[in-house]
């Protein structure tokens, strides 16, 4: 694999990142938002792996593992919170959760 595809891989990470970002922006369902953030984190992990590959170092992959851990922890807390919110508000609409403003 040549360096040209290294850039392509980075670009892929960027595209995935942006897709996740679009999704966060357009989705109202909190679960979808959480999924979209996961996509973004995954994209960031991909970028690390590309970088690690470029420099032939394990550090990129290690960062990926850390990201993985963090994503797991975050999703677990997030889902617990979503359950809580569903119980409180009876909806998953993030727009509805706007008691606080101004």
């Amino acid at each position: 694999m040549s360096t040209a595809s290294m850039e392509a891989a980075l670009l892929l990470a960027g595209i995935l990142f942006m897709l996740g970002l679009i999704s966060v922006l357009i989705r109202r369902n909190i679960i979808f938002m959480l999924i979209s953030v996961e996509i973004m984190l995954n994209a960031a992990g991909l970028a690390f792996i590309v970088a690690g590959t470029r420099w032939v170092q394990p550090d990129g992959q290690i960062m990926f593992i850390f990201i993985l851990t963090m994503a797991a922890a975050e999703v677990s807390v997030g889902l617990a919170l979503i359950l809580q919110i569903y119980h409180q508000l009876k909806t998953l609409n993030s727009d509805a959760a706007n008691i606080m403003k101004g």
């Binding site: 953030v37 990129g60 919110i85």
Partner: peptide, 25 residues
């Protein structure tokens, strides 16, 4: 309010973490 604050913080923090990570990458 507490829940609402939590979810807002969670989504946004994760979102910004993604930026941080991508930047670090």
């Amino acid at each position: 309010r507490s829940d609402e604050a939590g979810i807002k913080y969670l989504i946004l923090a994760a979102f910004s973490s993604a930026f941080l990570l991508f930047g670090m990458a």
